[in-house]
Design a protein around this nucleic acid. Structure first.
Lengths: 337, 337
DNA sequence: GTGAAAGCGCTAACAG
DNA sequence: CTGTTAGCGCTTTCAC
């Protein structure tokens, strides 16, 4: 193995000088710096991570706690996770992947053993058992999502309430007067997943503000369930001419179901989706949508973490403002004749 | 921080004794062991990962290289990744997550810096640039998937050829005489993804062996493409009464398309799917399928890695035998009257 | 602007 | 069966 001493010898300097060239923690003459950097390259030197962690008490690794639930939309989860890895690398950190089945104990372990020096927790629930642990962990953490009590925690998420409101506003602006929300499976709501509730709240609030009639439905992602929901909505709420869909896998079968019911999109029914932007390419007509900014969520989470690691103050809540991507799935409501 | 010296003092023994209790590398009297373990628990001691790595030159961390391509079925990727984490934890190892956009350089970095002591590479292509690097890395690695030249490498994968063959045999056993394979998007094949090609080969080989007429189609996952494929197959190959689908997201729209074409499943058309077993619960009729054993793939990969880390010999190729899960999507072909 | 040297916490000889 | 001790490779005072 190539050590810092090898580099020092090769460059004709002391090990500490090599260390300082690497860390930039003190001024080095240009000549020395160049010699050292040349030696580093020539020898293919990479500092030993363990030794560095031991001496500096900084592992330069962040933990990513990633629960795997079947009712979450997995591609988004992975997109966020990968964005976190990429962003962390940009700050010279690596990412250790933790599942939740080791439980809260896993957090204690990687923390106490100084394997990591910060933690990102994904898919946070309202009453998440990991939250109290984070508070007492004594090292920086960022949550993706909001628990019921987020006091003293740093949380990042899309502003789902505003996103739902934006969808409603879009429909209201087009002249719709009755709208429905097709939400995630009931289980997601019951489990107390914050974003699902915030979407519902934002939807209802915006509808009230705009004076629209509003209907809310949960929906399992199976083809049958979606079909049934569509049929019900059309039958029981013929006044509804605009749909907000916050349930990624339901979008293709929903459009299909509407087609079968002879409800043309967007002529008879406008549809706005809340989901990964890839969705737009997968169905016809390409839906108007509020994309879930996975990359930005990951990046912001890491930036907050780095700020905390560097002793900077950070805001408790980071709500990423939504944006509406135009599509071909919305139009003014059919005129009542 | 609680150190090994603190534990030693608390238990009235030397630090090395604590170390040996932890590692089990030499005999310890029951009395001493108990005292030490009690102290460890009492103080909440966790060995410092960096210090341990430095002294033992074993980081107890494996790298997981996870490319994120949109044309791969993401949920399966994540299932395998999580299985790897769980399995690694069972062997007292953690998992460092690497993306591929740091490139091959990332492998060098985590390896040279002794951040990890083994590597798992997922979603291997036939001519994968990571493969030559793995050969020269000088530390244990396992690939999930097979490159074109797997000599000297340790690879794990589902036996896709056998899986496709199993699907064909199932259809042949029911009396079908003409079958079609609806495969993944053309891009996956062109990119040289091994498993896609092995499925096609296994499909054709089995069809030939059983004397069946065989048709092969690539298919994009979009609703329209699937619909077009279904229409084409039915129109151009009316003799085909059995479908093997190796394209997870295409299954729901394919069944839907068949319904629209008045082709009843399984009365007029039998369908066997190759994909995650969760698929069975999502569509009606629940398809007969060969599930992709994500958990087993992850577990086997880690077991092989641990064997290599412990100097044991391991087989080059591990092909996991497929199994056929019964469903309600297959039946004898309609009798020609 | 640079060097010398004292640890960081642990493992693994070596010694008994 | 247990203790003593010399590093592992790096960072960071302290000294010049």
């Amino acid at each position: 193995m190539v050590t810092i001493a090898d580099v020092a010898r090769h460059a004709g300097v002391s090990p500490s000088t090599v260390s300082y060239v690497l860390s930039g923690k003190r001024a080095i003459s240009a000549a020395t710096r160049e010699r050292v950097e040349a030696s580093i390259k020539a020898l293919g030197y990479h500092p030993h991570a363990g030794a560095r962690a031991l001496a500096s008490s900084r592992a330069n690794v962040v933990a990513l706690v990633l629960p795997l639930r079947t009712d979450m939309h997995v591609p988004i989860l992975l997109q966020i996770a990968m964005a976190i890895v990429t962003a962390a690398r940009g700050h010279d950190h690596d990412v250790l992947l933790l599942t939740n089945d080791e439980g809260v104990e896993g957090l204690h372990r990687v923390t106490r053993s100084a394997l990591v020096d910060a933690v990102v927790v994904m898919d946070v629930e309202l009453h998440d058992p990991r939250v109290p642990v984070l508070r007492e962990l004594g090292l920086p953490s960022v949550l993706i999502g909001f628990p019921a009590d987020s006091a003293g925690l740093t949380c990042v998420d899309l502003d789902f309430a505003a996103a739902a409101g934006m969808c409603v506003d879009h429909l209201a602006d087009l002249g719709h007067t009755a709208v429905a929300l097709v939400g995630p499976p009931a289980g997601v709501l019951e489990r107390g997943t914050g974003f699902a509730r915030r979407t519902v709240a934002g939807f209802e609030e915006a509808a009230a503000r705009r004076g629209l009639r509003a209907v809310v439905r949960s929906c399992e992602p199976s083809h049958e369930a979606v079909q049934a929901t569509a049929k019900e909505l059309v039958a029981e709420h013929p006044e509804v001419t605009g749909l907000v869909v916050h349930n990624e896998p339901a979008v293709p079968p929903l459009l299909q179901a509407l087609r079968e019911l002879d409800v043309a999109v967007p002529r008879d029914m406008s549809v706005v989706a809340l989901g990964p932007k890839e969705l737009a390419a997968q169905v016809t007509p390409a839906p108007a949508m509020v994309p879930i900014p996975a990359e930005e969520m990951g990046r912001r989470a890491v930036e907050l973490l780095m700020d905390k690691l560097n002793g900077r103050d950070v805001p408790d809540a980071t709500l990423i403002p939504p944006s509406l991507l135009p599509g071909h799935s919305t139009a003014p409501p059919p005129s009542r004749t």
